[in-house]
Design a binder for these strands. Structure first.
Length: 404
RNA sequence: GCGUCGGUGGCGGAGUGGUCAAUCGCAUUAGACUGUAAAUCUAACGGAUUUAUCCUACGCAGGUUCAAAUCCUGCCCGGCGCA
């Protein structure tokens, strides 16, 4: 049997700790871990050109989404284009999420303002508008845009209201067409408020889908040579379920693991510890959808290798930048009145392209006047910030054994 | 000068006798955002406040009426038309 497409090499394991620095080898290059995975859901990192990613951000890997690319432009189009790398001009390792998160965001979370990572209890927020009439009808009738059953999930497209069905096999098949280096088993992302019984039920479903996902992957010989597959640990906030999920998935022949679901901020650490103590040490672990700086620090310390998060581009696009401070970092809302005449660098200690060339006042002006360059520059800075934040955690680990 | 239409909150613009501190939009001021339904969403936006309420507004000055931003008179200002 030939060498698997995805292999993981540990460069340094911190003694007495789950933390490690490593390298994930993929057909499109190496990922030095810990690493931040830039999110480009629709095959584009919102507001940032691939050339600028290469030149000014320096990320080693990107994540696209199966559900979104399936709806638009269609998996067949991407296949015809020669895969996501060629289609998007992404000359680097790529992952695709399975659509499992959309089971959550278009399901129980739909219209409720429920976040993946709530600070406390679920907050109700006003239902967002902008949906077309079909989706609105579905939302009114079901309160969500997808319905789950044992076999899979039926989605109503948030774009045009058309109905689509995802099963584990379908998700994997689409991910084969998209052609990412790392694909993810179809799973059910649950809400943080779900009770024990539901979490257990959903977890069981995710495990069965994981088994079917891996089987579907093994049946595609061509894909098997080029793409690795991760299984997703679930279990919500219940540690025994988390442990069980990690154990069950460890027994399957995955190339790595995603850790999914919703968390309360306070529960993250213990869940990661329990999961990563259970997962095999010699395979990479990806913390799905979590990536505020402090979360990445915690995740790295507890043995996670990669992280993806929409926060850098989402908050950047809406006027907020990460700024380093003496004791860490803070978020700065450039739309605040005080920055209109602040001609200092966006982030004094940052050497990125944006901070070298522009001022807070200029960015504030761009946002106030709704110029598209504002979101572009802020996203670029935030990605530079978080990618290098994660990179520094790796460097610290390699140079100083007591760090992390 | 005559005729005509109009003058409402930072701006635009509803309201045409009582339930009006006054729909709505913009601007402003804050807030939120963690496998992207998101270049999005939320809130505040006359003053005071124990947030229940109280006080001051609808160009200015009078008047009619139980009651006026809304009706009448005069004045001031602006657009348009005619001289």
């Amino acid at each position: 049997m030939s060498k698997p497409p995805i292999t993981f090499e540990i460069i340094k394991q911190k003694p007495g700790s789950l933390a490690r620095a490593g390298v994930i080898h993929t057909p499109h290059g190496d990922i030095e871990t810990p690493a931040f995975v830039v999110v480009g859901t629709k095959g584009t990192v919102k507001g940032v050109r691939p050339e600028d990613m290469r030149e000014y951000v320096g990320n080693q890997v990107a994540l696209a989404n199966t559900y979104h690319l399936f709806l638009q432009p269609g998996a067949d189009v991407i296949k015809e284009a020669g895969g996501i790398h060629k289609f998007s001009n992404w000359n680097l390792p790529v992952m695709t999420d399975s659509g499992g998160f959309q089971v959550f965001s278009l399901g129980v979370a739909f219209g409720k303002g429920v976040t993946k990572f709530s600070q406390g209890d679920i907050e109700e927020r006003t239902e967002q508008s902008g949906l077309n009439v079909y989706s609105k009808k579905m939302a009114e009738e079901h309160g969500k845009l997808c319905v789950i059953d044992e076999e899979g999930v039926t989605f109503t497209s948030h774009i045009d209201g058309s109905m689509h069905r995802f099963t584990a096999e379908r998700s994997i098949d689409i991910q084969h067409s998209i052609g990412a280096d790392i694909i993810i088993a179809f799973d059910e992302c649950t809400g943080s408020s779900a009770d024990y019984d539901y979490q257990k039920e959903a977890m069981g479903r995710t495990h069965r889908w994981a088994k079917r996902s891996i089987l579907a992957h093994k049946q595609n010989y061509q894909a098997l040579k080029k793409q690795g597959i991760y299984g997703v640990v679930q279990g919500g906030r219940f540690l025994d379920l988390r442990k069980e999920s990690a154990k069950v998935l460890s027994a399957m022949d995955f190339d790595g693991f995603g850790i999914g679901g919703s968390f309360s901020k306070k529960d993250l650490g213990e869940a990661l510890r329990v999961v990563n103590e259970e997962l095999p040490n010699d395979k990479p672990r990806h913390l799905l959808g979590i990536g505020e700086p402090e979360d990445i620090s915690e995740g790295v310390a507890l043995g996670c290798d990669t992280f993806d998060c929409v926060a850098p581009t989402r908050i950047g696009r809406t006027g907020t930048i990460y700024e380093r401070t003496n004791d860490g970092h803070k978020r700065t809302n450039l739309l605040n009145n005080q920055y209109q005449r602040d001609f200092s660098k966006p982030d004094e200690s940052c050497d990125c392209y944006v901070c070298q060339n522009y001022t807070k006042a200029y960015l504030a002006h761009l946002f106030r006047s709704r110029e598209m360059l504002g979101p572009q520059l802020a996203s670029l800075h935030n990605l530079h910030f978080i990618v290098n934040y994660t990179k520094r955690l790796r460097e610290k680990m390699l140079t100083n054994s007591s760090a992390v």
